[in-house]
Amino acid sequence: MNKKYMYSLLAVIVLILLPYVGVEAAGLQVLFGIIIPYLAVLIFIIGFIYRVMDWASSPVPFRIPTTCGQQKSLPWIKQNKIDNPFTTGAVIIRMALEILFFRSLFRNTSIGLNQGPKISYVWEKWLWIVALAFHYSFLTVLIRHLRFFLEPVPVWLQWLEKIDGFFQIGLPGLYMSGAVLLAAVTFLVLRRIYLPQVRYISLAADFLPLFLIISIAITGILMRYFTKVDVVGIKELAMGLASFHPAIPDGIGALFYIHLFLVSILFIYFPFSKLMHMPGVFMSPTRNLPNNTRAKMHINPWNYPVKVHTYDEYEDEFREKMKEAGLPLEKE
């Protein structure tokens, strides 16, 4: 047992019980269906902007990119243009590869002792593959949910649903993204629990979003494939929220309110948490700066104007005395 993930797990269980009791026993549909979701969006937007602008106000006067290849140098030395970018264009390519394909995770190696006391570094691609699967399936799931918020539902969204449900397994048809999301996020939790090195550096703040997302995925999957909910009623509620005419339709079960509440909590928690790596990845100065310090001078803009006394001035000041002492002079 580890206190860090037990705390997070307990917190999520309480967060699941809250709307259940609130809706089933106290009849607080308006609170959990209208007030908290709006509040969550508001806190998300304000918190997100606040954090990003806070980062934006931190000055980055010098180039501090981490590089993984040959810097631009003499013409006959081949430069690694993407891993050691010199121009803005190359930086954009580097950032795009990082953001879209998680290139830094691709470099992940695991260190081990093979054949006695020999250290070896082995390709470790699982984290990269699962992280990619997790982020892309989460994005797909998020976009798919737009069908509850848009009327009429745009054609591109229907294409996405068709592709996602390509295999036509069961009815309602299985969406691949949902299954992949749950599998991937489960892997990410187990990784933190079972790998001793990773467990050692994991905090409650690392587990909480994972448990939250697992619960969100499970409640969503339950609603679609198992216990079933009134989808038309839920779209009515979602459309009410999106068009600022909120209303609570009858006959929506507590499971939906649990799902909605957990999503609201995720939105509220987002700006305060490590989930801010979403905008943060764009702003990492070790990646988004071209490595051009040898070609361009970067001056710290808040440098204090230093009073300098050059040698010429020094000589002018003490010329006579230096002459008397017989010291060599630049100018006579």
């Binding site: 737009l146 009327e151 339709p249």
Partner: peptide, 16 residues
């Protein structure tokens, strides 16, 4: 992010 809000702006969608 706010796409759903301005996509539905001013439209009262009837429930079927």
């Amino acid at each position: 992010l706010t796409f759903p809000f301005w996509y539905n702006l001013g439209k009262a969608s009837p429930v079927p």
